[in-house]
């Protein structure tokens, strides 16, 4: 698939987004009654403008449609702030707020209970990069190893957005955070590689700039059994110091430049590249320029470009058809 031919038109290939008429808003990307009687993310929430997590929730809402009943588990992160103080909630689904490190463990409990009761409930764990890459890694790894019937979605804004903007192990090299004032020196963790190494049925990355691909993968992930992991790069205007309206465009640039590979891994072995980058240097440069967090740090674009090249030669080898 080429980068140019994805977008709203691709969405029509997915099953329940083929609505037309007045309900079909924004080429099917806006939430309508045709998707779910109630959107997963309700209107009037207090999330920041340009919040990538919110876009991801809306895509998930599409994917859930009317086919699934879901229960969500969310640890400390912006996503649980979205749930709001009692008695208000911005989620149109049951949400269990759990302790920071326990997302995958709590999801395990819910999934096992659903199994015992013979319910078809799909359990969705929804956590940020801090709760996934860092404090939640042990329970995440253990649940993946047990192949629990859980869909784990990490919305990765590359920063601790909820406690004052500290670095996480998902923060990319060169990004300024409150605890890396001169720019982070360490690499971003390869979460997809880590999860693929657990040989789970599906580990995939999702681009918010490619909603057709995103919804299709979410639908598939919801339907599959066993542990599924989705990684969403979620723009955060507050943490990235970028314009709220630029979020989706930033993701598109990251995908084009090859910085954020959009791919999937089945059973830890079969790698498929879903969106081919153009490796555009202009996109790469612009991606960094449009974000204040990279300004004035020791970011070396040449080095990033070399790393992208290396990463992609590995990815291509993994995705090559086997004899």
């Amino acid at each position: 698939m080429r980068d140019g031919d994805v977008g709203s038109s691709r969405l029509e290939m997915t099953e329940h987004a083929t609505c037309d008429g007045p309900e079909c808003l924004l080429g099917g990307m806006a939430q309508t009654a045709a998707d779910r009687p109630e959107p997963l993310l309700r209107a009037g929430n207090t999330n920041c403008g340009g919040c990538g997590m919110s876009v991801a929730l809306n895509l998930l809402s599409h994917a859930i449609g009317t086919q699934h009943r879901i229960q969500m588990v969310i640890p400390a992160c912006c996503g649980i702030v979205t749930a709001g103080p009692y008695p208000y909630s911005n989620y149109g689904a049951p949400v269990l707020a759990c302790t920071f490190a326990s997302t995958a463990a709590v999801a395990t409990g819910l999934a096992r209970a659903a199994q015992m009761n013979g319910e078809s409930t799909r359990v969705v764990a929804w956590a940020g990069d801090g709760g996934t890459y860092d404090i939640g890694m042990a329970t995440l790894s253990a649940a993946a190893e047990r192949n629990e019937d859980v869909l784990y979605i990490c919305y990765d804004n590359e920063i601790y957005g909820n406690t004052g903007g500290q670095r996480s192990s998902a923060t990319p090299t060169g990004a300024r955070t409150t605890t890396t004032p001169g720019g982070k020196v360490h690499h971003k963790k390869d979460i997809l590689g880590i999860m693929a190494a657990h040989r789970i049925p599906l580990a995939a990355s999702i681009s918010l700039a490619h909603p057709g691909d995103a919804v299709a993968k979410m639908e598939r992930a919801l339907a599959l059994e066993g542990f599924r992991f989705l990684h969403v790069l979620a723009p955060c205007p507050t943490g990235w110091k970028s314009e709220p309206a630029d979020g989706i465009e930033l993701i598109r640039m990251a995908v084009r430049a090859g910085l954020f590979p959009v791919c999937q891994v089945e059973d830890g072995r079969r790698w498929t590249i879903d969106v081919q980058p153009t490796f555009s240097r202009t996109d790469l440069a612009q991606y960094f320029e449009l974000q204040g967090r990279f300004r004035g740090t020791a970011l070396d674009i040449e080095q990033v470009a070399r790393q992208i090249e290396e990463h992609w030669s590995e990815l291509r080898a993994l995705a090559a058809p086997r004899g």
Partner: peptide
């Protein structure tokens, strides 16, 4: 990082010139 203690981490990380070493842990 945790509210309302995070500032201590931020502030102490700016005292490197006093020999302070700060380390943001994963948990």
């Amino acid at each position: 990082p945790i509210t309302p203690a995070s500032d201590i981490l931020h502030q102490l990380s700016s005292y490197k010139h006093h020999g302070v070493v700060t380390f943001q842990a994963e948990d």
